[in-house]
Design a protein around this nucleic acid. Structure first.
Lengths: 219, 219
DNA sequence: TAGATTGTTAATCGATTAACAATC
DNA sequence: TAGATTGTTAATCGATTAACAATC
């Protein structure tokens, strides 16, 4: 098994599929399946086997002719490619319902996220969520100075999102996972993933509306 | 202004961008901007003006040569195209943190969602969330018989998701918005939107990891 | 060895962009 | 009218699929 290291340009379409590979391989591994061919896996994932092999080829050679892939190995390779093996010390800003839901998300730890602090307005400070203390947001700056934090999660209302993103950037995070209903902007050396929950709802409504007509490309 | 009605096949790439058009146009309209050219709007949205005009052309003619688009009209057209003007009576299953967060999502009503019932295990029944009563989930079936419900939202743990989806389908919903950390499967005449929250986290981690290397196609 | 399946090349398909005639 | 900007066609670019030699 060879994991390619050089500076190959990965197509964005391939990058978007990496989490899907992770999910299905994690599931197969959990189920104790040790070996799978590109044909079998592609059927489970509802893609073509060509696409599966083509995608993997951007990262290296993970299979064996006439045999297929060892699930555990391929799963490990995908984890390495995505970068899950690293630990990401993370702060969560916003201890409302959404913040709590995210803090309790079962896949969190598995993906390398280690929650080190939760922040909210002073009246919520002192609580604990999943064993992590809730601090008043006015100490966020100094907290970020004293602790190495790689990732910030924002689950606040729209109004405060951008300012908090600025503070996170100033505090040295590498990425921001933003759930506020407004996108936040960050400098080029920081990655922001703005989740537009309303977008997926609109997609759903559109598909419902156009289901009967043949206005939808088969997908 | 002409809205195309015939059975044109809309490319999936265009469909995926509709919510983005909705979001930006809603914002411009809210700000009181009444007129915009494809060049200006495309700059705000960080796409090309060609793409913007090409996308809109699948649905009709909404602009005026030498003038541009009236924001209000174009916004209204996008709403019609997506189908937001309809009302979608909706049930929410799962009154935990995520369920509560979704019930309180400010863009909910604006997109035509009308919450008519919330369901959870019997010990949570009797509560009210956003003025909507929480019913025990064992009466879901009869509730769906007595009420017209077009959309079901699932925010339960993985274990119960598929069974609840089955009940929703049996109860006649047209769509399911699923936040359980496992995809649900539905018959062809029902639309399911499975939200994989973990996927967006993995994308973020991948981008953080590969930021420095030139392994990412510029995007 | 014979059968199976990979990794990769080439062909096809779809999406994006450039360019411009039409026209407000 | 002159300037601006649309809607659309054609060219380019990128992503997917088919096919197969290499090989376990």
């Amino acid at each position: 098994m060879v994991i390619r290291t050089g500076p190959v340009t990965i197509p964005t379409a391939v990058i978007k599929r990496l989490p899907m590979y992770y999910r299905y391989l994690a599931d197969l591994d959990r189920k104790g399946i040790s070996r799978i061919s590109s044909r079998e896996l592609s059927q489970i994932m509802d893609i073509t086997s060509s696409q599966l092999r083509q995608d993997l080829s951007y990262f290296g050679e993970f299979g064996q002719q006439g045999f297929g892939y060892r699930v555990e190995d391929l799963y490990g390779a995908i984890c390495t490619i995505i970068g899950i093996e690293n630990i990401y010390p993370t702060v969560l800003i916003g201890a409302g319902n959404l913040g709590k839901a995210i803090a309790k998300y079962p896949g969190f730890r598995r993906r390398g996220i280690e929650l080190v602090g939760i922040f909210d307005l002073p009246d919520k400070a002192g609580e604990e969520i999943e064993g992590i203390p809730v601090y008043p947001v006015n100490i966020l700056q100094s907290f970020l100075l004293e602790n190495i934090v790689r990732l910030g999660i924002i689950t606040t209302p729209a109004e405060s999102a951008q300012q908090l993103a600025n503070e996170l950037v100033k505090g040295g995070v590498s990425g921001i996972w933003n759930f506020a209903p407004i996108p936040v902007f960050v400098p080029d050396d920081v990655v922001a993933e703005n989740i537009h929950i309303g977008d997926s709802l609109l997609s759903l409504l559109f598909k419902i509306k156009h289901k009967e007509n043949n206005e939808l490309a088969p997908n």
